[in-house]
Design a protein around this nucleic acid. Structure first.
Length: 403
RNA sequence: GGGCGGAUACUCAAGUGGCCAACGAGGGCAGACUGUAAAUCUGCUGACUUACGUCUACGGGGGUUCGAAUCCCUCUCCGCCCA
């Protein structure tokens, strides 16, 4: 247990002079990890297609599991039977579980939101499943991650259906902004009430640190109110939720730049679900310490390659005869292993499972190397050359977040 | 030698007089993906063109018709049956 009285301790080891970025270390019952940290996502207690040794080879020091998915299959009790997720998936290092609050947003079909919790329809067998703060914490206690997340109410920025081109949808959204604000208000207050229930239900405070989650969309006033409420709880860390749920990169950057500094300086700050390299860099500069994102793995499995000079789609025909590695500067199993773009393309065209594995490894390593570089830049405060080594140039229309 | 059936775009395969540059599937080409129901989803796929459109095309050649992938003749090739 850390000096704070929590299972999780946070130590700030250095600060950037020109930005709010800080270098740190979080210590958990299963070891510590350096911050700013990128935490890859292993939803169902597996980093799809990778062994723990392969995960470790990417430099990951902490990974995510998802309470909702593990609750449905194989069941929290089953995971507990094997001694919790660390032992179950053979990953001895830190694990963080997401509470399932995000799934209420991403799987809206057939979900019912009440003060009690969210009623889902199980995608496994179609049965009705109630996920409440108490149930989520119970599940997370059983899974046994080092860091567990509050069960929050995470409203979408857009309609959940992925139809950004549908003019009808955007008209609907534009026509009633007050309705959306009302929804956000409801979400932050409910998130606070649910947090109190999470804290009360948490049965393993000495072994697992519970993080609170701030909501409020892109509305600064609502964010401020949410921060006041959530940070009034004595918790070992706080997260910014409700970001990257449909907003533009510019909105993400602005919101994070505003909200991160409001969170307690002495506790780790976790930006949930973000993101692209540019998003991570901007958030680090705003004072965020922890990130998670499915992009390196999900996109890697589809042939999308992250490189310092930008994205590569390995299926593109221009790689057919290319003997070069994905990234000549990369030391991952795929690049240092000498696998050519032409070979990797072949694996994808032939639907061979080694392809997604190797690209996931490469993408994960890409993000870990980005974090190593970012950490090295924080203390000496040299940011300019970092932007030459990583594709972090702000997209057009993004607010000038710094200075 | 005779009889019957078949030949459609990269592949398989629908289409039997105009609504056909031709259903569908595969393949190919390209795109999306931010707290993972994601090996998913979307678009394109004869040529030129932003598009309108124009041209070339349903085995080869000839014909009927205002109009043919579709009907007739003939040739080539393939399959099955009879000799």
């Amino acid at each position: 247990m850390g000096a704070s009285g929590h299972a999780i301790a946070f130590e700030v080891r250095g600060r950037s002079a020109s930005t709010r970025a800080r270098l740190g270390r979080v210590t958990t019952p299963h070891g510590s990890f350096d911050t700013p940290a990128f935490m890859p996502v292993a939803t169902a207690a597996t980093m799809k297609g990778l062994t723990p040794a392969q995960i470790e080879s990417t430099g990951a020091q902490i990974i995510l599991n998802n309470a909702y998915h593990l609750m449905l299959r194989p069941g929290a009790e089953r995971v507990a039977h094997f001694g919790g997720s660390h032992s179950f998936m053979r990953w001895p290092k830190p694990i963080l579980t997401d509470s399932g609050g995000f799934q209420a947003w991403s799987m809206t079909e057939g979900t019912k939101l009440t003060e009690e919790g969210v009623e889902f329809r199980s995608f496994v067998d179609g049965s009705k499943v109630m996920l409440s703060p108490e149930r989520s914490i119970d599940v997370q206690n059983k899974i046994g991650a080092d860091i567990i997340m509050a069960f929050d109410d995470c409203p979408p920025a857009k309609r959940p259906e992925q139809l950004p081109d549908d003019p009808q949808l955007s008209r609907k959204r534009r026509s009633n902004p007050e309705e959306h604000r009302k929804r956000l208000e409801e979400a932050i207050d409910r998130t606070t009430r649910w947090l109190a229930r999470c804290v009360a239900a948490h049965a393993r405070k000495d072994e697992q640190g519970l993080f609170g989650i701030v909501q409020g969309g892109t509305d600064l006033e609502l964010r401020r109110r949410s921060v006041e409420q959530v940070c009034s709880f004595d918790l070992p860390g706080f997260a910014i939720g409700g970001v990257a749920v449909g907003e533009s990169p510019a909105e993400i950057h602005r919101t994070v730049a505003e909200v991160a500094p409001m969170l307690p300086d002495a506790k780790p700050r976790y930006l949930m679900g973000v993101g692209y390299e540019r998003d991570i860099l901007e958030a680090v500069k705003a004072g965020v310490d922890m990130f998670d994102c499915v992009l390196p793995t999900r996109n890697g499995r589809k042939g999308y390659v992250f490189t310092p000079t930008g994205a590569l789609r390995i299926r593109n025909s221009c790689h057919t005869l290319d003997a070069a590695p994905l990234d000549p500067t990369c030391d991952c199993l795929a690049c240092a292993g000498g696998f050519s773009r032409g070979y990797l393309r072949h694996l994808f065209m032939a639907d061979e499972m080694l392809g997604p594995t190797l690209l996931s490894i490469h993408n994960l390593r890409h993000f870990q190397r980005l974090m190593v570089d970012i950490r090295a830049r924080i203390v000496d405060d040299r940011w300019f050359d970092l932007e030459e080594r990583w594709p972090v140039v702000r997209p057009p229309g993004t607010a000038e977040a710094e200075s």
